[in-house]
């Protein structure tokens, strides 16, 4: 520590001694004019070179890059909107197709149902017709059968009477006799 301090003292004293002649070099007025002159010349030249050549060049490159990036972004944006539109169109087509398919299915179903219905109705009416015809035939047969019952009964009765009484009784007479009983 003491060594360092003494070294500092030595250095400073030596420096002070050395500068005894001229003082601080920065404050020597004789040196001002060359520095000012060269400062003016170099600064103005540097300004001209930078502002005329260098900076526009850098600015141009930066501008170009910004444009390029903007262009690419725009293109990407356009592609994205194209994709969106295509996607929307696809969705629409899909839903249309789905709608159409369901309507078609409904139509077919309806038509089939109608067909079945009409077939059923036709069959039913046919069956009904056949049924009524059969019923009519049955009733006709029945009434005919019933009609012949009287005759058979009269004949049988006349035959029975003839056998029992030994006299001929015509069926017509039997009938006449039986009429009130039948009524």
């Amino acid at each position: 520590m003491i060594a360092a301090l003494s070294a500092l003292a030595v250095v400073v004293a030596a420096a002070a001694h050395e500068e005894k002649a001229g003082g601080l070099p920065q404050l020597n007025p004789a040196d001002f004019s060359p520095q000012l002159a060269w400062l003016a010349v170099t600064f103005v030249l540097l300004y001209l070179v930078l502002s005329r050549v260098t900076l526009p060049r850098i600015g141009e490159v930066l501008e170009e890059r910004r444009d390029r990036v903007q262009r690419d972004l725009d293109a990407a944006e356009r592609f994205k909107s194209d994709t969106d539109a295509a996607l929307a169109a696809y969705e629409k087509a899909l839903s249309d197709a789905r709608l159409k398919a369901s309507s078609m299915a409904k139509e077919v179903r309806d038509r089939l149902a109608a067909d079945t219905e009409s077939e059923r109705a036709r069959t039913e009416s046919e069956l009904t017709a056949k049924l009524t015809e059969a019923e009519q035939r049955i009733s006709a047969t029945k009434s005919k059968a019933l009609a012949s019952v009287d005759e058979i009964a009269a004949e049988t009765a006349s035959a029975v009477v003839g056998k029992l009484l030994g006299e001929d009784v015509s069926p017509a007479e039997v009938k006449k006799v039986m009429q009130p009983a039948a009524e």
């Binding site: 004789a30 004019s33 060359p34 520095q35 060269w38 400062l39 540097l46 070179v49 930078l50 260098t54």
Partner: peptide, 21 residues
Amino acid sequence: GYDVSFTNASLFMVLALAVIP
């Protein structure tokens, strides 16, 4: 009549003028 000598300061100013561009 003014002193415009090329000094060591001038040298470094010119150097800067050359180095930057």
